[in-house]
Simulated scan of single mutants.
Amino acid sequence: MNIGLIGAGAIANFLLQQLGENEQNGLCINSVYVRNKEKYEGLEQQFGITLFTELDAFLASDIDLVVEAATIEAVQKLVPTILKQKPVVLISIGALADEPLLQQLNELAIQYNHELYLPSGAIGGLDLLQNANALGTVKEVSLTTRKPAHSLIDQEINEAQVIFEGTARDAIRKFPKNMNVSIVLALASIGFDKTKVRLVADPHIDQNIHQVDIIGNFGEATFIIKNNPLPQNAKTSYLAAMSILGTLQRINDKLIIGG
């Protein structure tokens, strides 16, 4: 499967390295869409890809699927057009807190018969959550995220501080680069306004720690994920990058585990 990639940041480079250096179920990145070709022209020789700055030319290249690895703004501007022509793996899931955009993308996916894949990102357990809510009987979903203080606030602190407490919808509005986890949880269960979020700035940790608590007719579940940073970029979760690679690997699988 030939993959087109939007963006050339940390996650994009991780995917280029993994799919360029290792045989991964016939997966190959051969086209990359960027805003500034000169800035990233070294990628063409390094990974044997072609850079594009025009969306139409990018979509007309030899690609079967597009991976968005850019920003919420890129999702808003580009993905509606892309979904008309190609399936999409969406990384900037926070964009879907905009419900008109979510509805538009869902309708386009149905109309043009193109899948919209949402990787689990920096957490796990979404299969459990979706299964537990198969009858709509999950009652509570809450997320407590602890991150190194310097990644969230400018001032120095000596003790952990709660810097946000509210809904998933408000969390992504206030912290658009930090709360994709809350949006994928909300989409998998009880919605943006019922999913509760607590964000803690902690000066004593060097990992991102997510605790998810679920209560419903099925019983209760709690899971905790402690994420190491991506070696190439400390601001990016290693698991978030690997979740995209895992999603791509599973797309062509005939043996489906979980779900």
Rank of each mutant, 00 (worst) to 15 (best):
M1F: 07
I3M: 07
I6Y: 01
I6T: 00
I6L: 08
L16P: 01
L16V: 01
L16A: 06
Q17V: 11
Q18K: 13
L19G: 05
E21K: 13
E21N: 14
N22K: 12
E23S: 14
Q24E: 14
N25R: 12
N25E: 13
L27M: 06
I29C: 07
S31Y: 06
Y33A: 02
R35Q: 11
N36K: 12
Y40W: 09
Y40T: 08
E41I: 10
G42I: 03
E44M: 07
I49Q: 05
F52C: 10
F52N: 07
T53R: 01
E54M: 06
D56V: 00
F58M: 07
L59F: 05
L59Y: 04
A60V: 00
S61E: 09
D62L: 04
V66G: 07
A69C: 12
A69I: 01
T71N: 10
I72Q: 11
K77L: 12
P80V: 07
T81C: 07
T81Y: 06
T81A: 14
K84H: 00
V89F: 08
I91G: 15
I91L: 15
I91T: 11
S92D: 11
G94H: 06
L96I: 01
A97F: 02
P100N: 07
P100G: 10
Q103A: 15
L108H: 02
A109I: 01
H114K: 14
E115S: 15
L116C: 13
Y117D: 10
P119T: 10
P119M: 11
G121S: 09
G121Y: 04
I123L: 14
L128F: 14
G136Y: 06
G136H: 08
K139P: 02
K139H: 08
E140R: 11
T144P: 00
R146K: 13
R146V: 02
K147Y: 06
H150E: 14
E156P: 02
A160G: 12
V162N: 05
I163P: 02
F164V: 03
E165W: 01
R169Y: 11
D170Y: 03
D170R: 04
R173A: 15
K174G: 15
P176I: 03
K177A: 15
V181N: 14
I183K: 04
V184P: 01
V184T: 14
L185F: 09
L185T: 05
L185I: 05
A186L: 09
L187M: 06
F192S: 06
K194W: 01
T195P: 12
V197W: 02
V197K: 08
A201S: 08
P203W: 03
I205K: 02
D206F: 09
Q207C: 12
Q207H: 13
I209T: 04
Q211F: 00
V212T: 07
V212S: 00
I215Y: 10
G216E: 07
N217L: 13
G219E: 03
E220C: 07
A221R: 03
T222Q: 14
T222F: 02
I224V: 14
I225K: 13
P229A: 13
P231L: 08
S237E: 13
L239Y: 09
A240K: 04
A241H: 00
L245Y: 06
Q249K: 15
Q249C: 13
R250T: 12
N252M: 09
I257M: 12
G258N: 12
G259R: 13
